[in-house]
Design a protein around this nucleic acid. Structure first.
Lengths: 198, 198
DNA sequence: TTGATAAACGGAGGGTCCCTCCATATTTAA
DNA sequence: TTAAATATGGAGGGACCCTCCGTTTATCAA
C-alpha cells in the first residue's frame, strides 16, 4: 500500500498522451519564439502532428500553453543563477547574471512579449521563481558590504533591461542593454542619497 | 494646365467626413487606453456611432488607428520637454521630464503595449519626435558639463522606465519607476569607466 | 491472448472578429 | 435645383478560437 493519497487502482498514464504533450510543447516553443503570440493554435497543432482537439485537451487555454513554454525558459535561468552564486564573488555574480539575462532576452523577445500579455497564476509562479533566484544574487553583495541597499526591488532591474531589449528589435539593442547593466550597477553602487529615496 | 501639384479645382473636404474622423479618434482613445489592443474595431465604430465601413475608410488598418492615437500622446510629451528645457537647469530638466514620462506611462500602459506590437512607419515617426525632444534634454547637461556622456542612447532610458512600468500593473510600480529615474541619473553621473563601455 | 473499458484522438461546426465591397445617402459646386 | 463627387453602413467571405462527440487506441484483468 504505497501511497496515502493512494489512487488505489490508478491506471498508468497512457504513453501516447505524454508523447503528444511533448510534441506540442516543442512545436509551441519553436512557434512562439519565432513569431510570438500571433501563431494560431491550428498551426501549432499541425506542426506537432496532432489534431486541434488534442492540443486543447492538453492545454485548455492558449495562455496555458504559452506559460508552460515560458516556465521552461525560466527554470534554465534559475539554474544559471545558482551556478554563478556558487562560483563568483557576489557583485560579479550579479553582474554576470544580468548579462546572461540580456542574452536570454535576445533569444526570446517575442515569447516574452506574448507572455507579458497574459495574466495567469502559473506565470506569476514562474516569475516568482526568477525573482527568488535574483534576490539571492542581490542580497549577497549587500550582505558582504560590496554594495549599499539600492532601494529598488530586484525585479525592477529585469524590467529595465526588458524594456531596453524589447522596444526596437531592429537596432543593436544588445550592446545598449549591456551598457545599461553597468549603469544600473554603478547607480546602485553610488552612495549618494537621492531625493526620491527619502 | 495650371499646376503640377495644383489642386486647381479641389473640392472642400466634406464636413461629415472630418466630424466622423474625430468621433472615431475619440472613441478609439477611450477604448485603447482602457482596454489596450483587445478592443474590436466593431466596438470602436459602435461607440463612435458610425458604421464599420466608415471606420475602415478613415483608418484602413487597425494599426493606423492605434498609431494615430499614440501620436497625439507623443505630441503632448514633446511640448512638455520644450517647456522644461526653457525653464529649468539642464540636469533638472532631464530628471523632471523623466519623471513626467513615468506619469505618462501610468495613464497609458495598455495603449503603449498595443502600440509596441505594431510596426508602422508613422509609429517610427512619432517615436523619432520623442527621441528628438529627449536628445535635447540629454545633450544640454552634457554640453554644460553637468554630466559626462553616459554612452547610452537616450531612448534606452525610456525603454528602461517602460520596462519597469509595464511588467506588473498590480504592484506599486510608479514608486519603483521614480527611484529608477534616480538610479539612472546617478549611474550616468558616475565617472567610473566600466568594462562594457570599453 | 483476448476482451472490456478508461482514456485519448481528431476534426466538424458554432461563434467572433477582421476587413472588403458596393448600393445608397449626403454634401458640394454650378 | 440638379449633377457630380464623396461619404456612409452593413452584408458577407475568410481566418481563427474553442467545444463537442463519435471513433480509435492503450491499459488491465481474465
Amino acid at each position: 500500500m504505497p501511497a496515502d493519497l493512494g489512487p488505489e487502482k490508478a491506471r498508468k498514464p497512457r504513453a501516447d498522451a505524454e508523447r503528444n504533450r511533448q510534441k506540442l510543447l516543442n512545436a509551441a516553443r519553436a512557434a512562439f519564439t519565432a513569431q510570438g503570440g500571433l501563431v494560431s493554435m491550428e498551426e501549432v497543432a499541425r506542426t506537432a502532428g496532432v489534431g486541434i482537439g488534442t492540443l486543447y485537451r492538453h492545454f485548455p487555454t492558449r495562455d496555458g500553453l504559452l506559460v508552460e513554454v515560458y516556465r521552461g525558459e525560466i527554470a534554465r535561468l534559475c539554474q544559471e543563477a545558482e551556478l554563478l552564486a556558487a562560483t563568483k564573488t557576489p557583485l560579479e555574480a550579479l553582474r554576470a547574471w544580468l548579462l546572461l539575462f540580456v542574452d536570454h532576452l535576445a533569444d526570446n523577445i517575442v515569447l516574452g512579449d506574448a507572455v507579458k500579455a497574459t495574466a495567469g497564476e502559473s506565470k506569476a509562479d514562474a516569475t516568482a521563481q526568477l525573482l527568488t533566484a535574483l534576490d539571492i544574487l542581490m542580497d549577497n553583495p549587500i550582505a558582504v558590504g560590496a554594495m549599499p541597499d539600492p532601494g529598488v526591488e530586484s525585479l525592477d532591474l529585469l524590467r529595465a533591461l526588458y524594456g531596453v531589449a524589447t522596444a526596437s528589435p531592429s537596432s543593436n539593442w544588445v550592446g545598449a542593454a549591456r551598457r545599461m547593466v553597468d549603469i544600473l550597477i554603478a547607480g546602485m553602487d553610488s552612495r549618494e542619497t537621492s531625493p526620491n529615496s527619502a
